[in-house]
Amino acid sequence: MFFETYKIELIKTGFLLLTLLIVRFVLTTLITKISRKKGINLARIHLINRYVSVTLFLIALIIIPFIFGTEAHDLVVIFSSVFAVIGIGLFAIWSILSNITSGIIMFFSFPYKVGDKIQIHDKDFPLEGIIEDIRAFQLHLRLENGDLVTYPNNLMLQRAVTLIQKDAIDDDSIADI
């Protein structure tokens, strides 16, 4: 009964999802090719591709209710309620929002990349190691003794950092980790 009632909507949804999958494949292929030509780090290419996938998923979540006949004002009420709850939750845990914002800033203007050896000048806990990964919330730093330290992105922007050696490790050894 459900499938008969919403047959056209389900077909449109399937077509939308197929189209978005094709767009995702084309975009990730283009991003990968262009990034490799420009010498962008493999870890950063994967991060960009993840952002593309999440963006296309959000686009699908916005379009699908319209396919099933939802009015725009109904979606506005739903989204405003969801964003209000998220806003209150993020305000209550501001450090997460701070780390996400710092992650975005680091993504576009961070002078260091995966494989660089850096020293973080923290008064209480100075660190020196090789950047293994830069994520949305934290940076992974491998110390000389082999320990892996996750360092919050917001602190990376607040502390002085010295670049000791550019590309201390190469992309192939990162993929093996």
Score class of each variant (00 low, 15 high):
residue 2 F to R: 08
residue 3 F to I: 14
residue 4 E to P: 09
residue 5 T to C: 09
residue 5 T to Q: 15
residue 5 T to V: 15
residue 5 T to I: 12
residue 6 Y to I: 01
residue 9 E to T: 03
residue 11 I to Q: 03
residue 12 K to G: 08
residue 12 K to Y: 15
residue 13 T to E: 07
residue 14 G to K: 07
residue 15 F to H: 09
residue 15 F to L: 15
residue 18 L to K: 05
residue 19 T to M: 10
residue 24 R to W: 14
residue 27 L to Y: 13
residue 27 L to W: 07
residue 31 I to S: 11
residue 32 T to W: 10
residue 36 R to E: 15
residue 36 R to N: 14
residue 38 K to W: 12
residue 38 K to D: 10
residue 41 N to L: 04
residue 42 L to V: 11
residue 45 I to E: 02
residue 46 H to C: 06
residue 47 L to R: 12
residue 49 N to Q: 13
residue 49 N to R: 10
residue 51 Y to F: 11
residue 51 Y to N: 13
residue 53 S to F: 05
residue 55 T to N: 10
residue 56 L to C: 07
residue 59 I to S: 12
residue 60 A to M: 00
residue 60 A to T: 02
residue 61 L to Y: 03
residue 62 I to L: 15
residue 63 I to F: 10
residue 64 I to G: 04
residue 66 F to T: 10
residue 68 F to N: 01
residue 68 F to R: 05
residue 69 G to T: 04
residue 70 T to R: 14
residue 71 E to V: 07
residue 72 A to C: 08
residue 74 D to A: 12
residue 75 L to S: 11
residue 75 L to D: 11
residue 76 V to T: 10
residue 78 I to E: 09
residue 80 S to D: 12
residue 81 S to M: 13
residue 81 S to W: 08
residue 81 S to V: 09
residue 83 F to V: 07
residue 85 V to A: 15
residue 87 G to L: 04
residue 87 G to P: 04
residue 87 G to R: 07
residue 91 F to P: 08
residue 92 A to V: 08
residue 93 I to N: 14
residue 93 I to T: 13
residue 94 W to G: 14
residue 95 S to N: 11
residue 96 I to K: 03
residue 96 I to G: 05
residue 96 I to W: 05
residue 98 S to I: 03
residue 98 S to W: 12
residue 100 I to H: 10
residue 102 S to C: 04
residue 102 S to D: 09
residue 104 I to D: 06
residue 105 I to N: 05
residue 105 I to D: 01
residue 106 M to L: 15
residue 108 F to S: 10
residue 110 F to P: 03
residue 111 P to T: 00
residue 111 P to G: 06
residue 112 Y to T: 05
residue 114 V to C: 01
residue 116 D to V: 02
residue 119 Q to V: 00
residue 122 D to C: 04
residue 122 D to M: 04
residue 123 K to I: 10
residue 123 K to D: 14
residue 123 K to R: 15
residue 126 P to Q: 04
residue 127 L to K: 05
residue 132 E to V: 06
residue 133 D to V: 02
residue 133 D to H: 12
residue 135 R to P: 00
residue 135 R to D: 11
residue 135 R to H: 07
residue 135 R to Q: 13
residue 136 A to W: 11
residue 137 F to H: 08
residue 139 L to Y: 03
residue 140 H to G: 08
residue 140 H to P: 00
residue 141 L to Q: 00
residue 141 L to P: 05
residue 142 R to N: 11
residue 142 R to K: 15
residue 143 L to K: 06
residue 143 L to M: 11
residue 146 G to A: 08
residue 147 D to Q: 11
residue 147 D to I: 00
residue 149 V to H: 02
residue 150 T to I: 07
residue 151 Y to M: 06
residue 151 Y to W: 04
residue 152 P to C: 00
residue 152 P to E: 03
residue 153 N to L: 02
residue 153 N to W: 11
residue 154 N to R: 13
residue 155 L to Q: 10
residue 155 L to G: 05
residue 156 M to K: 00
residue 157 L to G: 01
residue 157 L to R: 01
residue 158 Q to K: 09
residue 161 V to E: 03
residue 161 V to N: 02
residue 162 T to D: 13
residue 162 T to H: 06
residue 164 I to R: 04
residue 169 I to A: 09
residue 169 I to H: 00
residue 169 I to G: 06
residue 170 D to W: 02
residue 170 D to Q: 08
residue 172 D to E: 14
residue 172 D to P: 02
residue 172 D to Q: 13
residue 173 S to H: 14
residue 174 I to G: 05
residue 175 A to Q: 11
residue 175 A to D: 13
residue 175 A to N: 12
residue 177 I to Y: 13
residue 177 I to S: 10
